[in-house]
């Protein structure tokens, strides 16, 4: 539980971070989506294998139950509400696509 709350604080404390780190908001969201993906789904994958353009179904091998579990993790981590029934399949293509969707719901 500690790691989740720390991460959530990091995810939401965007403005207080040093701008010299030169990470865009989207980059940070991609990093957080990746973290939730790895931790919540306990994937037996080398984190180095997952990058922004990894596709959830084809590359990472998720099924719809795992995607839903990821959505729950992201809703908790970012404090947002997905409109899951109304979502566009394109939003769930890759880590980057989902991070963009998350940004749009904040």
């Amino acid at each position: 539980m500690t790691s989740r709350s720390e991460a959530a604080a990091g995810g939401q404390g965007v403005k207080s971070e040093n701008p010299s780190l030169d990470r865009t908001s989207l980059d940070r969201t991609i990093a957080e989506v990746t973290r939730v993906l790895l931790e919540r789904l306990e994937l037996q994958l080398d984190p180095a294998e997952i990058h922004a353009d990894s596709e959830f179904f084809d590359d990472i091998g998720l099924d719809s139950a795992a995607v839903l579990d990821l959505v729950i993790g992201l809703e908790e981590s970012f404090g947002i509400d997905f409109d899951i029934a109304g979502s566009d399949p394109e939003d769930f293509r890759s880590v980057r696509c989902l991070a963009r969707y998350v940004e749009s719901r904040r």
Partner: peptide
């Protein structure tokens, strides 16, 4: 039921197979 209908009527919806 309304949500289910939306999922079913969206081609390629991520939750369809669920």
């Amino acid at each position: 039921r309304e949500d289910i209908r939306r999922i079913e009527s969206t081609p390629g919806h991520v939750l369809q197979e669920g």
